[in-house]
Nucleic acid binder design. Structure first.
Lengths: 189, 189
DNA sequence: TTGACAATGTATCGGCTTGATATATCATAC
DNA sequence: GTATGATATATCAAGCCGATACATTGTCAA
């Protein structure tokens, strides 16, 4: 059993959740995992073909009227591959690309004014993601979607926390203080 | 002035900070921005060539002994491009790819036991990044590197917070409670 | 009823990115 | 002297994103 490539992981999971066309998978991803695991058509469709060739899913054509449509299901091998991945004890991957932080890193090349605006942009970014998550929060809040809801709460906690952190930096800068925010002892291990 | 591609942004900033070979840039990235902005040789060297062709940097060969070595400097155009990017009011990009969260999203396909281990893996991941950042923390803590130090603190705050959050989920699961962690009212906007 | 627009569905492209690997030289230490 | 690690450049397969193109079907208002 070779390891599933990144896109294959969402695909198998989403098919298991009953999303059985490329379009359907993409639609759910865009309103759920997008904030921590995105997927594009450019990866989805080729990967569906590959997974079918490898026998992890089976597809059948089910056009609705004249509109082509291919519906997929997990095979036994596919179920096993999904479960093996989920149960695997390997350290999960974690990657972040945060342009706002990079700008702050180069803060010496900015004026005081530009720096404040960069900090504000970071605060606003996290506030924005938080607000977006809060909008879908009520829809996710039911027993059917217990675990998706938990991941939504994780995102909420993270972005609320970072928004508050940048807000504090902003206030320190406004007061002319050193921007370093002392670590909250409560958070320490 | 067309917008800088992602790798060009680190390159110009790092050259401004005095890192003037591809190797030197990569070395600094790996001990500083790596946690929120990585860069690989595969992007660095081609991009250095492109930036030189576009006139944002100039390179001269400065072999040390028989070892080839190309040293770069910012041109005026390069300085301007760097500054334009830093001062730009466009919403900074933010992308996350978190395999641990994706596993939790598919939590219904796991046993109670496997779920606990997945949650533990998430807690440990954030603890690990926190510990790694704490190790380089003393080196970064000086006036010369005020802004890099601030980004390090941002990372510390974020990973400490997420480690604590997952620890709480873990404890709730251990007590047989619903894993939903209620939002901390202090964090709310 | 027709015409516009949104939703469903598949597909592809350019350019960006990673991670691994290859090649060489030089410095250090044993 | 020779192994190891640091310095330095380069390349490749594979993965990935965002945009776009295309076609069909459903909806709704003028």
């Amino acid at each position: 059993m070779q390891t599933l490539n990144p896109t294959a992981r969402v695909i198998l999971g989403m098919i298991k959740l009953g999303r059985n066309t490329g379009y359907d998978i993409k639609s759910l991803v865009d309103v759920s995992t997008r904030h921590f695991w995105a997927a594009s058509y450019g990866q989805l469709y080729p990967e569906l073909k590959r997974l079918e060739q490898d026998g992890l899913i089976t597809g059948r054509d089910e056009p609705s009227g004249g509109r082509r449509r291919r519906v997929y299901e997990l095979t036994e091998d596919g179920e096993r591959a999904l479960h093996d991945w989920l149960a695997s004890d390997e350290k999960p991957s974690y990657e972040l690309r945060d342009e706002g932080l990079l700008k702050i890193f180069f803060g010496d090349s900015m004026s005081a004014d530009e720096l404040v605006r960069a900090v504000q942009a970071n605060r606003r970014l996290h506030e924005g993601v938080g607000a977006a998550l809060r909008e879908i929060e009520p829809h996710a809040r039911d027993a059917e979607t217990r675990f998706p809801y938990l991941t939504l709460q994780a995102g909420l906690a993270e972005h609320d926390h970072m928004a508050a952190w940048w807000r504090e930096v902003e206030e320190r800068l406004a007061r002319g203080e050193d921007p370093h925010v002392p670590a909250d002892p409560k958070e320490q291990q």
